[in-house]
Design a protein around this nucleic acid. Structure first.
Lengths: 219, 219
DNA sequence: AGGTGTGAACACTTTCACAGCA
DNA sequence: TGCTGTGAAAGTGTTCACACCT
């Protein structure tokens, strides 16, 4: 299959979210126009995105909601569940562990690790926080496929390397560092500091623009 | 000034992070080649990104580290600090409140809000969690410029609207919904579920590819 | 009529390659 | 010589516009 761009996949994810909502609202069918409006994109974009994977719509009618939901779930690999390990039992780790949307989409956190002796042994629901040294053996024993990295920046590369050696195939990285990994691994980064700096840039550059305009106007 | 693309701004953020590390390591100068390697991009890309804002390097020598750090801080609007309100005192809110990188970059969380009576009145460091109804008055009184939205999806649009009316200029949104806002607002979304689904897609499509290859090989 | 699927046009980003300065 | 800054080329992603099906 042709290579699909990351923005396209991200939009599929959005479409699925919208469609589930529409399904709850009871509508049986939905046009690309309406789907686009609710997902924050354009009708042409919606049709192009979907067309890469097949033809799902009916001309003159739109998309059948439950059918498109199933198709997107299949495309995104959400029909099965994934075995996930969480590394880092700090505040971010705790927030992610409690994030209901993960579980709902079939991301089952089946092990939690940390280095801090004060955290090791704590009960988190039905799990017990385990020492980081057990990562390799546990990854194999529990058949972990994905790990969520919620550790400090300095520790992230080391943990990632060990996870890779233990057979993990995907990493969701919350540490603000560029990880060096073999190409065979799937990696996604969530960098909150970067997003915040993006906001800061946007606000600061608007201020600069406003100042310039004022100066021009008064000049 | 010419419009700068979002990927460019994101990379500036990465460059700044790398440069600070290099600064700690004591190097006075850095080539685009080395900066690119550590930031996970290419030398040409680094030079193009920086060239939009001016000329910072010296031919034959590279970039002076402290100078480039200052320049990037200025460009990104990180020389000043920003007054930030946090809405949502749940687990995600707590994680963000404790996220040291925010404070370090000058994002000062000066107010926390929630609807839950059990949370209202709680002490969070030197702050007290306030009822959501106070958002408008507090935003004005505390001159909030940015809010972090860490509320459930259903509540996000309403809170955002109120924040906008109260004069907030930027929103960092953690709720998995497309917010509808006036163009004058700066908005950044952090969607962890979407990232996870991106991982799922990558792993599932690799499996599909592997199966196809095997079938071809055995055919 | 209404709305999809899609080639072709367009816009934007990245990479190349090299002139030119320290 | 070494490495930046930058036009020009290549590559990607988005939008347009319309043929075609229901």
């Amino acid at each position: 299959m042709k290579k699909i761009s990351e923005p396209t996949v991200n939009r599929l994810s959005m479409y699925l979210r919208v469609l589930r909502q529409v399904e709850r609202e009871g509508a049986a069918t939905l046009s690309s126009e309406e789907l686009a409006r609710r997902a924050g994109t354009t009708a042409a974009q919606v049709r192009k995105d979907l067309s890469v994977f097949g033809t799902f719509g009916t001309r003159g009618r739109g998309y059948a909601v439950p059918e498109l939901v199933s198709a997107l779930r299949r495309i995104l690999g959400l029909e099965r569940s994934w075995r996930v390990g969480l590394v880092g039992a700090g505040k971010i780790g705790a927030a992610l562990f409690g994030y209901a949307d993960f579980r709902r989409q079939g991301f089952d956190i089946v092990a939690v690790f940390d280095v801090d002796p004060a955290k090791i042994g704590q009960r988190w629901d039905e799990l017990v926080v385990r020492p980081l040294e057990e990562l390799e053996t546990a990854a194999a024993a529990d058949a972990l496929e994905i790990i969520i990295l919620a550790v400090p920046a300095e520790a992230a590369q080391d943990v990632a390397d060990r996870a890779v050696r233990a057979g993990v195939r995907g990493i969701l990285n919350f540490a603000p560092v560029k990880l060096n990994l073999p190409e065979t691994l799937a990696l996604k980064n969530v960098n909150m500091a970067m997003e915040m700096e993006g906001l800061s840039y946007a606000l600061a550059s608007r201020e600069r623009a406003a100042r310039t305009t004022t100066r021009k106007r008064t000049a």
